[in-house]
Amino acid sequence: MAEAATATKGHAEGETRRDFIYLAAMGMSAVGAAAVAWPFISFMNPSADVLALSTTEVDLKPVLEGMAITVTWRGKPVFVRRRTKAEVDTAAAVKLTDLPDPETDAARVKKPEWLVLVGVCTHLGCVPLGQKTADPRGDYGGWFCPCHGSHYDTSGRIRKGPAPNNLAVPPYAFLDDTTIRIG
């Protein structure tokens, strides 16, 4: 053991005046290990086939005024609501200062009649209620998240509860008057 102890001590002294070669060996090994990590991290990101499936087309013809439909886009629910005149007016009348996440209604729609939202509560990812006529729609007539009690208005903006942001608007475009493509 005595021998081993001296060797240890000798090594410790060696470390204080580390050779270039040891540093190079350790440095390069570290760089190599870090480089190996990248493919594994990237491996878990969405693959090419998943990325390719990122658009959904929706036919709006069957949706009547006051009705809403839920479609799937990237595995998430997307709410498409055909708002009534009253709902549009209520949403437009809200003062920005009353909003936790200020945004005008006009900035959230392409045509006032059609509201398109990612149906995922910005708090912790539950799907808010309010799509069906029988659902509770919260205090502001929009959506209500049952998980932790967030209330959204008729523009999908957060009004009350723990959610920090408005319901997100996905990228979408009107292909014609009655068809939208999400994504």
Partner: peptide
């Protein structure tokens, strides 16, 4: 990369 690294490891 590995050839250079192995050369250095040999020297070390």
């Amino acid at each position: 990369f590995l050839i250079v690294l192995t050369g250095i490891l040999y020297a070390a």
